[in-house]
Simulated assay, not measured.
Amino acid sequence: MPTIETLFSKLDNSKVIDDSIPYSQYTPIDLSVSNSELSEVDLRNPNAFETFIEDHLRKNKAKVAFGGYNEVRNLYKQKALFNDEQASERNIHIGIDLWIKAGTAVLAALDGTVYGFDYNTGAGNYGPTIILKHSLENQTFYTLYGHLSAESIEDIEINTFFKKKQQLATLGDSSVNGGYAPHLHFQIIKNIGKNFSDYPGVCSKNDLEYYLENCPNPNLLLKIQ
């Protein structure tokens, strides 16, 4: 049986952000610990961080900034959610982030049904979140869409079917999305276990091997050049 990664390689690209924005208007962004520019930004202040994102987009004449898979970040240092004293620090991002203004349309990556949704509250959390379930050549997997608007989950129902590139939601602002500049956290999950409306999007170095295997690079689907 082919791997999910092999199946993804045979598909046309998927879009999860407003389909009217071409990939030519996307630009990569480095939010890793090695980016010295971030030392001058108050990462605890979503407004300051949003200004940093907007400046990056303006400099690169782009509408969407993307990146972050398998990226070690300092973004989570001030958030208790990621720093349990009994466990190793979780600071490695295992989804892809797409940074663009609040209210932007979020699209289903592939044909799928709503598996779970919730308002995951708390600083650093996903805020409103939707998880879709997919089947491809008899293999089941999931896609997670985090940091959505509250309106995105008001009328949604389990098992509702969405077609590839159909609008699923809109992006939330910092007041609902866990305190971040507006962006979509998009993640692929092979084995979701007992999770229903949430799944770790950041892991520790100790668990990295497992999560990289269970959560393949989302760009295998998106195919952003």
Score class of each variant (00 low, 15 high):
Met1Leu: 07
Met1Lys: 14
Pro2Ile: 10
Thr3Phe: 10
Thr3His: 08
Ile4Trp: 14
Ile4Ser: 13
Glu5Ile: 14
Thr6Asp: 15
Leu7Phe: 12
Ser9Leu: 15
Leu11Arg: 14
Leu11Gly: 07
Leu11Gln: 15
Leu11Cys: 10
Asn13Pro: 12
Ser14Leu: 11
Ser14Thr: 15
Lys15Phe: 06
Val16Gly: 06
Asp18Cys: 05
Asp18Ile: 06
Asp18Glu: 11
Asp19Cys: 08
Ile21Leu: 05
Pro22Lys: 02
Pro22Gln: 02
Ser24Val: 05
Gln25Ile: 01
Tyr26Arg: 01
Tyr26Gln: 00
Ile29Gly: 00
Asp30Leu: 02
Ser32Trp: 04
Ser32Thr: 08
Ser34Trp: 11
Asn35Phe: 05
Ser36Phe: 02
Leu38Ala: 01
Ser39Leu: 15
Ser39Trp: 09
Ser39Phe: 08
Arg44His: 06
Asn45Thr: 01
Asn45Ile: 04
Asn45Asp: 15
Glu50Lys: 07
Glu50Ile: 01
Asp55His: 13
Arg58Ile: 02
Lys59Trp: 00
Asn60Phe: 00
Lys63Trp: 04
Phe66Lys: 03
Gly68Thr: 08
Tyr69Lys: 03
Leu75Val: 03
Gln78Leu: 03
Gln78Phe: 09
Gln78Ile: 01
Glu85Val: 07
Gln86Trp: 13
Ala87Phe: 15
Ser88Asn: 14
Glu89Ile: 14
Glu89His: 10
Arg90Asn: 03
His93Ser: 09
His93Lys: 09
Ile96Ser: 14
Asp97Leu: 10
Leu98Tyr: 13
Leu98Gln: 12
Ala102Val: 01
Thr104Leu: 00
Thr104Cys: 00
Val106Met: 03
Ala109Ile: 10
Leu110Pro: 09
Leu110Thr: 13
Gly112Gln: 10
Gly112Val: 11
Val114Lys: 06
Tyr115Val: 07
Tyr115His: 15
Tyr119Val: 10
Tyr119Ser: 11
Thr121Ile: 14
Gly124His: 03
Asn125Phe: 00
Tyr126Val: 03
Tyr126Gly: 09
Ile130Val: 14
Ile131Leu: 12
Ile131Ser: 02
Ile131Thr: 08
Leu132His: 10
Leu132Thr: 10
His134Trp: 13
Ser135Asp: 15
Gln139Ala: 08
Phe141Ala: 06
Gly146Val: 11
Gly146Met: 12
Leu148Asn: 01
Ser149Arg: 01
Ala150Tyr: 05
Glu151Gln: 15
Ser152Cys: 07
Ser152Val: 03
Ile153Gln: 05
Ile153His: 06
Glu157Phe: 12
Ile158Met: 11
Thr160Ala: 14
Phe161Thr: 14
Lys163Leu: 07
Lys163Ile: 04
Lys164Arg: 15
Lys165Met: 14
Leu168Thr: 06
Ala169Glu: 01
Ala169Gln: 03
Ala169Met: 02
Thr170Ile: 12
Leu171Pro: 01
Leu171Gln: 00
Leu171Phe: 04
Gly172Gln: 03
Asp173Gln: 04
Ser174Gln: 12
Val176Tyr: 11
Asn177Asp: 09
Gly179Leu: 08
Gly179Pro: 09
Tyr180Ser: 06
Tyr180Pro: 09
Tyr180Thr: 09
Ala181Thr: 04
Pro182Gln: 05
Leu184Thr: 05
Leu184Asp: 04
His185Cys: 07
His185Trp: 10
Ile188Leu: 13
Phe196Gln: 11
Pro200Phe: 10
Pro200Asp: 09
Gly201Val: 08
Cys203Met: 07
Asp207Gln: 14
Leu208Gly: 09
Tyr210Arg: 13
Leu212Phe: 05
Leu212Tyr: 06
Leu212Gly: 03
Glu213Arg: 07
Glu213Ser: 12
Asn214Thr: 11
Asn219Asp: 14
